[in-house]
Design a protein around this nucleic acid. Structure first.
Lengths: 243, 243
DNA sequence: CAGTGGTCTAGACCACGCA
DNA sequence: GCGTGGTCTAGACCACTGG
């Protein structure tokens, strides 16, 4: 491990913070691992305890680490999973509780992206994408019709996506492709269900729904997924808390 | 100003933080005011600079204060205004930019609350509410039809609400009734526009819309407003960023 | 008991904004 | 030049956890 640059314009705690973050993002430490104590970091990097503390505290603030007094400092769950839960938790989303979630994969195939998708994923000319279309159900009733578009450069072989259903798409990204999704942009608006969607969602055309578009980015800021969801309005309600 | 309790179970920085927060919430300092410097707080409360700094830093983290190097520490905008801006900024909400926002008050009157409203506002039997129904426009085109329900105990005289339009409801709350809204819960779902709403919104029944319900709370956690909005789906798009 | 994080002090030097 | 916040050090005592 190279020493930190003392006397640099970049604060020591910030340099240390980046080192720790890098070690987590590259998989050096993962979910639940114990990282070195304040005293150990202090010795390893030649800084004071308050400086190593400040680096850790900011990472705790960002939700990357968590601390337990008397035990140590540990790696928290990836950030996006937390945020998604915070914003619209799928369990809370459903009016009925006691749900039995299940995803049906309708198709996985290589397609030519529309202009909108090409833009969202920052693709070049002629770059192809893999489309995975899923019907997401709870208690065997459909509630979301979802299409994920993933650049071919990310997932060379569509077959690799077949595991989705057993594990989540983002877990698959992290485990199979070494891609950690850390950020996402979302846009949504109310729409009417169209005829071709109504069949899958087992409802009628013209019923209220939410159109949700999400672009997910990996740690380097590269877009890795563009997702379009149609959410049945009668089955879903979204909650947020503004504090 | 009473001194802090040294040696208490409650950390000094936390006590100081509460003192500062209280001074802001009671109006001792308001938006844009400069608060005492770290050195001044250090002397006034008999703590070290790091302790006064930590109290301030946490309030900065919570968005209550902001700091400018070389100038000082200042009171930020009330939190809710920020959150609302962060979550669905009305300016970003509109597809068209260069908007000219205007609110038309349709009615202000004392009404008997429905069961839903009574529950949201935690009202007792026979307690009345003031309903303020507004049509919110941009570029003279309607986009939101909104009804606010406010407990009569909060605003004794409906006439006091007439200023809304010149200033925002939450600014009125803070200036006239000394109520600072600090928290809000929101729920939304897609719906179809109904006949009676379509007239105001100048569209057709059956068009997509967003139904948005918000309960706003003051500092003590008392509900002070329940608001039902119908948002035209064709004119609005909501954005969020998950990080 | 040793190790951890939680709090706190009393110093220090720096970059910045302003008069 | 002075006051501000930004960074940093080297100590200290405490409460909690685990062996």
């Amino acid at each position: 491990m190279e020493p930190l640059q003392h006397g640099s314009v970049i604060p020591l705690y910030h340099q240390l913070k980046e080192r720790l973050k890098e070690a987590i993002e590259t998989g050096r430490w993962t979910l639940g691992d114990k990282i070195p104590s304040e005293n150990q970091l202090m010795d390893q990097f030649g800084v004071s305890r308050n400086t190593s503390k400040k680096a850790i505290e900011e990472l705790v603030q960002e939700g990357i680490l968590y601390r337990v007094q008397g035990k140590g400092t540990f790696v928290a769950k990836p950030k996006l999973q937390q945020s998604l839960m915070g914003f619209y938790s799928f369990s809370k989303v459903l009016k009925e509780k006691g749900l039995n979630p299940k995803d049906v994969i309708l198709k996985i195939e290589e397609v030519s992206p529309t202009e909108k998708i090409r833009e969202a994923l920052e693709l070049g000319e002629d770059e192809m994408v893999i489309e995975m279309k899923r019907l997401r159900c709870a208690n065997n009733e459909p509630y979301i019709l979802e299409s994920s578009f993933i650049p071919k450069s990310v997932v060379q072989d569509p077959k690799q996506l077949n595991q989705v259903g057993e594990i989540s798409l983002y877990d698959l990204f992290s485990q199979q492709f070494n891609i950690v999704v850390t950020r996402a942009k979302e846009a949504f608006e109310p729409v009417l269900i169209r005829a071709e969607e109504s069949e899958y969602l087992e409802t009628e055309a013209g019923q209220p729904a939410l159109l949700l578009e999400r672009t997910a980015f990996d740690v380097s800021g590269m877009p890795v997924e563009f997702c379009i969801s149609i959410v049945r309005g009668d089955r879903c309600r979204f909650y947020t808390e503004l504090t």
